[in-house]
Amino acid sequence: MREKAIYILAILAALVMIPNLKTVFMGLPDEAMQGAIYRIIFIHVPAAINAQVFFTVSLVTSILFLVKKNFLWDSISVSCIEVGTMLVVVNLVTGSIWGRNQWGIWWAWDLRMTSQLMCFLLYLGYLLVRPAIAEPTQRATLSAFVAIFAYADIPLVLMAIRLPNVRTQHPGPVLETGTMAPEFRAPFGLGVLAVFLICTALILIRQHQETAQREIDSLRRELHSI
């Protein structure tokens, strides 16, 4: 059942992504101001959107774990956070490449970039603290706590970096006023969908590994106690 779901998701993702990449690279014209580099947006923004989606899922599953004490929820949380953190890295790296090309610098302390970097650091803490806890119930509970605290920080970070004393360099159109040319919209939406499908398949694989790992650990402990 699970394997089938993973294969179906992967095939669907390939079916969406390959024609979409063809459209993006061969079909669409270069952007008037930026040239070819603008195509990063078809990976950069889907990665950011999906990362937020998976972090939100991890918040819900973390709360569910604390309420129900079912390890299924814990394994989904950790898989979502691992994949989400990877997506944030993709987002930051592609954005940085675009920035080097367009702004001439790899990094600017712009509000969107800062908030995304904070997001990365928050969940990096989660991924670092998890392996340091040996006992499964304790690990799952403390991780759920960290995940909820980390998620609560995101709106505060957004509020903090909008303060008047913080500089911003992101072009306004990206954040507030701009719209996308109609022929870019379909490839953009399909890009979001393709990343979502691939990452859901990855999450299912990681969730399975996490469950198997916990079972192996408990068998090992049983063996030691004999």
Binding site: L121, G125, L128, V129, A150, D153, M159, A160
Partner: peptide, 16 residues
């Protein structure tokens, strides 16, 4: 582990 977890959470507070 404490600083690794604590400082990212404190960022908005410290900015303010």
């Amino acid at each position: 582990m404490l600083p690794v977890l604590l400082y990212p959470i404190l960022i908005p507070l410290l900015i303010g």
